[in-house]
């Protein structure tokens, strides 16, 4: 692994999360939503935005409504589940 944190790492996380969709779907939904933000913030620029878009396309396969999730929705989802 050369370089730093990149798209590969984000999709690695995505792959690790996919195994937990059935166990804790709410937490995975929140984490998926976060990974898009993570790509945009950690990678930055047009590249970060394009990675975030690509990631959301993958995430919508598991959660079709992920595009509509906002920060308030996250609070509601977290309230329904037991996070940490």
């Amino acid at each position: 692994m050369k370089g730093g944190f990149g798209a590969r790492d984000i999709f690695d996380l995505c792959g690790a999360l996919q195994k937990h969709v059935k166990d804790s779907p709410q937490n995975v939904l929140v984490a998926f939503t976060f990974l898009g933000t993570l790509a945009r913030l950690a990678l930055g620029g047009n590249y970060g935005a394009s990675v975030a878009r690509a990631f959301r396309i993958v995430a919508t396969k598991h959660f079709p409504s992920i595009l509509d999730v906002s920060a308030k929705d996250i609070d509601r989802i977290v309230g329904e589940s037991s996070v940490v």
């Binding site: 996380l13 690790a16 999360l17 937990h20 804790s24 937490n27 995975v28 929140v30 984490a31 939503t33 976060f34 990974l35 933000t37 993570l38 913030l41 906002s70 920060a71 996250i74 609070d75 977290v78 037991s82 996070v83 940490v84």
Partner: peptide
Amino acid sequence: SEDAHMVRRGMEALLSILKPD
């Protein structure tokens, strides 16, 4: 900000999912 909120909740979720492994 909203981003900060999202990051905080997301990291919590990520930890709760992956940490048991």
